[in-house]
């Protein structure tokens, strides 16, 4: 899923200064799972903003609403009935959600309330870790199910570098060395010989070389 974290409240308030009628718009998908922009967080942020506005004698209306998916047009379109009452949307969607709303409602400013972080997994309560860069050319078979692109600090395809010590990365002892994990897993499967050959330079055109990416599936179109 896409992970995100809420921006600092002062930064959010700074961006909202010009507006009097604000819709705080949550998203019940990924950002709900990572407790950043779901219904609960949206209600809490709206309430905080109302409180701050009141304390500062600001004359603003702040209301909240949460879509099932802010990045899907079919859901965004349902805002049509209510969006006219506001002069700004504070989106608690990921970057895709913010832009999907902005794309549909070109007349209204859509302000990001989150910093979108990464594609990752919920590893434990309150712990999300990055493990995919969306490179467009999955190499996980080759690397025993551990992505060196997302999880090695130097994105080495032929690691580990000389800074791997005790299974930890040189940049920070809290960071696991992805290459230690790759080697451990491939050893377990008896497939370590896979790493004897040199992994060739990555074809980055699948990620960014061709400009913004899109997927077109004619079988899905109507």
């Amino acid at each position: 899923m896409i992970t995100a974290q809420q921006k600092p409240i002062d930064e959010i308030r700074g961006m909202l200064v010009p507006y009097k009628r604000i819709l705080v718009l949550g998203c019940a998908s990924c950002v709900a799972e990572c407790a950043a922009g779901g219904q609960k967080e949206t209600a809490m942020l709206a309430s905080t903003l109302r409180m701050k506005a009141k304390m500062n004698n600001e004359d603003v209306i702040i209301q909240e609403h949460t879509l099932d998916r802010q990045c899907v047009k079919d859901f965004v379109v349902t805002l049509d009935d209510i969006i006219g009452s506001y002069d700004a949307v504070l989106s608690l969607g990921c970057g895709a959600g913010v832009q999907a709303v902005a794309e549909m409602f070109s007349e209204i400013p859509v302000i990001p309330g989150l910093n979108t972080e990464f594609i990752g997994e919920t590893r434990a309560q309150g712990l999300w870790v990055e493990n995919c860069l969306g490179c467009g050319d999955c190499m996980l078979y080759y690397f025993g199910g551990v992505c060196p692109l997302a999880r090695c600090s130097k994105q080495l395809f032929n690691g580990p570098c000389g800074g791997s010590v005790g299974g930890k990365c040189e940049i920070n002892p809290d960071v696991d060395c992805a290459w230690q994990k790759i080697i451990d897993r491939l050893s377990r499967f008896g497939a370590l010989d896979r790493l004897e050959t040199i992994y060739p330079p990555k074809n980055w055109s699948r990620k960014q070389g061709g400009g913004p990416r899109k997927i077109i599936r004619e079988d899905q179109q109507r």
């Binding site: 600090s153 130097k154 994105q155 032929n158 040199i198 980055w204």
Partner: peptide, 10 residues
Amino acid sequence: VGVFDLDSIQ
């Protein structure tokens, strides 16, 4: 930004 387009072996 760390580029790391190629690695040292490549």
